[in-house]
Simulated assay, not measured.
Amino acid sequence: MKQEINTINSISQLHQVFGFDKPTHPLISIVDVSKWEIPEHFIGVKYTSELYTIGLKDKSCGLQYGRNTYDFDEGVLIFTAPNQVQSVSKSQKLDEIQGWMLFFHPDLIRNNSLGNNIDNYGFFSYDVHEALHLSDLEQKTITDCKSMIQNEISERIDNHSQTVISSSLELLLNLSKRYYERQFNTRSSQNSDVVSQFHTILSSYYKDGKFTESGIPSVEYFSEKIYLSGNYLSDLLKKETGYSIKDHINNFIIEKAKTLLLCETESINGIAYSLGFNYPHYFSRLFKNKTGLTPQEYRSQN
């Protein structure tokens, strides 16, 4: 029997479910993890929420996220977006873990610049094992941003509160984006291995005839092979090579198409099908966008 997934729709409901005091703001809340007791009966219960979450924890804390279970052994920053299934894998006593969890509802940022740009922070869709590992100074800076927000929601709300809270939250996310870039840089040798692995998988997919059989590979296809989330893998490739997963796939297709156009007597429609396109005009559009020529023009001129 499929286990029921519980849904948390609001900050108030979050506080009620986990036994916190009544929130001081309807759209954002910060919880002291040391005061968060998780009893045995919460273990394995699946839940999803309509809230964004940012969490800083200092040591091992069992968390199951999607298909992965992970225990943190040092201070890390975790991000989750709305509608992602999570569950707790072990109980937690008072003062067992140090840190904080920040929750906010999309309505908090819906009518400002952060709301327009929230999708640019891809780390909200990273897997748990791709969490951000912070230096002591970075951790202090992030915590200072959290404290600014906490001061705002603890004091009496006024006409400026929404702007200050959103601006502080945006600063926290921009700093996290910077620190993730640092993390990519400090793991450059590991990242190079991932880039090489990605290209090997892409080449094998073509050699095995899967473009023709199954179509153009998806981001999920590579993320499952490499054991990284799609967003993290795409961001890693972008940082290392300047190109996203989609860019790499399209560039690969164009190079194969050039060879086929010059070396084969296959029709352009046939080449499009062999490269995974169900509709040849999509292939022609991509080819012209990348080369400035239609496939027929390229074949004629070469």
Rank of each mutant, 00 (worst) to 15 (best):
S12M: 04
Q13C: 01
H15W: 05
H15Q: 08
P26E: 01
K35E: 03
P39D: 01
H41K: 09
L51G: 02
L56V: 09
K57E: 04
D58A: 10
C61K: 12
L63R: 12
T69L: 11
F72L: 07
G75W: 09
F79L: 06
T80I: 04
Q84I: 15
Q86Y: 04
K93R: 08
E96M: 14
Q98C: 10
G99D: 08
M101G: 00
F103W: 11
H105Y: 06
D107M: 15
D107H: 14
D107A: 13
L108D: 01
R110N: 12
R110M: 14
S113N: 09
I118E: 01
N120G: 09
F124P: 01
V128G: 02
E130S: 05
E130R: 07
A131S: 05
H133K: 11
K140Y: 13
C145P: 04
K146D: 00
M148W: 13
E152D: 13
N159C: 13
Q162Y: 09
E170G: 03
L173R: 05
L175H: 06
Y180R: 00
E181N: 15
Q183V: 06
N185T: 15
S188Y: 15
S192K: 15
H199Q: 07
I201V: 14
S203M: 06
S204V: 12
Y205P: 03
Y205G: 02
Y205A: 00
Y205E: 06
K207A: 07
G209P: 14
T212W: 08
P217H: 06
S218K: 10
F222P: 00
S229H: 12
G230D: 00
Y232W: 02
D235C: 02
K239M: 10
K246F: 15
K246R: 14
F252D: 02
I253K: 01
E255K: 15
A257E: 04
K258R: 12
T259N: 09
L261Q: 04
I268K: 07
H281A: 05
F287K: 02
F287D: 03
N289D: 05
P295G: 01
P295I: 06
R299W: 07
S300I: 09
